[in-house]
């Protein structure tokens, strides 16, 4: 080892380059979601100050309305960071709301919750097994599952809403408050906190990112990438089923339509939050802000008096703009 005394840092000629190298890590593109959030917030705060945008009630409303998307998007972050996709989350939420409502009216609150979770476990395991064991692309598996789940939900209820009269359930899942804090905000906070810590600070999280970043290398490193793929889809399914129960609690009923289209909002939130659509990089906190930004835009556009067709156009344009700004060069 005669020539093993090389320093660990490459010499950087010129002080300027060294400074640039250090600040290069503070790349504003990585923080575009936070910048965008602040800009949109400030914009609405000024523009809509007379419409009550800044009133505490309206702000809490934004949280309430985005809670289910936030929860779903936390699970989706894992799936996308692992270079997969889950299109079945919205209809899984719908099926879960229906099963919870039906089991609850028959047997009570605990079986109701278990029925909802069982939906997530079954759908998630099926998605995971088909993707990891049979190697079918998750796009196709979950696209099929999207149809199956919503079809089952509609079928077993004969398209009828299933009212939930259990106040305890409705209070816990959605309608209740803890002091001044809406229960839904607490739910999102719990999911985001756990999701963020697990993704960035645990072995499992690292293995998800490595599998998404380069599956072959992850395999060669001794990571069971099949199991990881299974697990992320299972997580996504279970998390979506909890979101379904949050719908059920807030709207005091189970309906097959609950959650319809949420997969797209969740994917948008995840991508806005800086998770790579090609896997390998992901941020749960970014996802939270992605979901909040979407909620913010929805709320602001409603207050501004745009009708729903105009809202869709503006929302779509803002999402494309944000992703375009955040993309890597």
């Amino acid at each position: 080892m005669n020539n093993r005394t090389i320093s660990t840092t490459a010499p950087e000629p010129g002080g300027l380059a060294a400074v640039r190298g250090r600040f290069g890590e503070l790349d504003w593109r990585r923080y575009v979601i936070y910048i965008g959030f602040v800009v949109v917030f400030a914009f609405f705060a000024v523009l809509l100050r007379d419409q009550g945008f800044l009133s505490p009630n309206n702000l809490l409303n934004i949280f309430r309305q985005t809670a289910t998307i936030t929860v779903i998007a936390v699970g989706m972050t894992y799936v996308i960071a692992c270079a997969e996709i889950d299109l079945s989350v919205g209809s899984t939420a719908g099926l879960s709301s229906v099963c919870t409502a039906m089991a609850l009216s028959q047997w009570g609150i605990v079986p109701g919750i278990l029925a909802g979770l069982a939906v997530g476990l079954v759908v998630g395991s099926l998605n995971g097994a088909l993707v990891s064991l049979l190697g079918i692309p998750s796009f196709l598996v979950t696209l099929g599952m999207l149809g199956i789940a919503v079809g089952v939900a509609q079928w077993i209820t004969a398209s009828a809403p299933q009212p939930i009269l259990n106040d305890t359930f409705n209070t816990i899942f959605g309608s209740g408050n803890i002091g001044p804090v809406p229960g839904l905000l607490v739910w999102s906070a719990i999911f985001v906190a756990i999701g963020a810590v697990v993704l960035s600070r645990t072995k499992f999280g690292r293995q998800v990112l490595a599998t998404g970043g380069n599956r072959t290398a992850a395999d060669f490193t001794g990571i069971n990438t099949k199991r990881i793929k299974f697990q992320v889809l299972l997580i996504s399914g279970v998390v979506a089923s909890v979101a379904g129960m949050l719908y059920a609690g807030r709207l005091e009923s189970g309906r097959f339509q609950w959650g319809a289209g949420d997969e797209l909002s969740a994917i948008a939130a995840v991508i806005l939050g800086g998770t790579s659509l090609f896997g390998g990089a992901g941020s749960v906190v970014g996802t939270l802000f992605g979901a909040l930004l979407i909620g913010l835009i929805n709320n602001g556009l409603i207050l501004a008096g745009l009708d729903s067709s105009q809202q869709q156009v503006v929302r779509g344009a803002i999402i494309i703009l944000a992703v375009a700004l955040a993309r890597k060069k």
């Binding site: 380069n214 390998g280 990089a281």
Partner: peptide, 15 residues
């Protein structure tokens, strides 16, 4: 087969 190219040197080493 050896590296996750987009990940940091540290993350690759620790995998």
């Amino acid at each position: 087969q050896g590296l996750v190219l987009d990940h940091s040197v540290r993350d690759n080493l620790l995998l």
